[in-house]
Amino acid sequence: MSTNKAILVLEDGTVFRGRSYGAIGETFGEAVFSTGMSGYQETLTDPSYVGQVVIATAPHIGNTGWNDEDDESQRIWVSGYVVRDPARRASSWRSTISLDEQLVAQGIVGISDIDTRALTIHLRDAGAMRVGISSLGEDAADLLDKVRRSPRMEGADHVATVTTNEPYVVQAVGPKRFTVAAIDLGIKSNTPRQMVERGIEVIVVPASITAEELLEMNTDGVFLSNGPGDPATADHAVGLTRAVLGARRPMFGICFGNQIFGRALGFDTYKLKYGHRGINQPVRDRTTGRIDITAHNHGFAVDAPLDKSVETEFGTVNVSHVCLNDDVVEGLELRRDGQLRAFSVQYHPEAAAGPHDAEHLFDRFVALMQATK
Score class of each variant (00 low, 15 high):
R19K: 15
G331V: 11
R152Q: 13
A237F: 02
H321F: 07
P231F: 04
Q339F: 07
A237K: 09
S92Q: 11
I133Y: 01
S309K: 13
L214D: 03
E26Q: 10
V238N: 05
E72Q: 14
P47I: 02
L215P: 01
T43C: 00
P192G: 11
L334A: 07
H296S: 12
R148Q: 12
D235L: 15
H122W: 06
G186P: 00
V147C: 04
Y21E: 09
A23P: 04
I114P: 05
R148D: 02
V283M: 11
D71G: 07
L332H: 03
R336C: 13
I55G: 01
G155L: 08
A182K: 00
T64D: 15
Q41D: 00
L245H: 03
I293M: 12
V104C: 05
T288W: 08
C323R: 11
G62I: 04
A237D: 08
R84M: 15
F314R: 02
T269K: 09
S208R: 14
H360G: 03
K5H: 13
F343C: 01
I61W: 01
G127V: 09
P192N: 12
G239T: 03
A58F: 14
H321R: 08
G239C: 02
T164F: 09
I200V: 15
D139P: 03
M37E: 13
L224K: 00
L215R: 02
T164V: 15
L334Q: 06
G354D: 06
G25M: 06
K5T: 12
A264Q: 07
H321T: 04
K373R: 15
E359A: 12
L240S: 02
V50H: 03
D113C: 11
V173G: 10
T43K: 00
I114M: 07
T120Q: 05
G229M: 06
F362S: 01
V82I: 15
V205Y: 02
L144E: 00
A304W: 07
V244P: 03
L119P: 08
G246W: 10
V78W: 00
R249L: 10
V283S: 07
H356C: 04
S189R: 12
K146Q: 14
G186N: 01
E26M: 08
R249F: 00
V322H: 05
H60E: 15
G354E: 07
R242T: 08
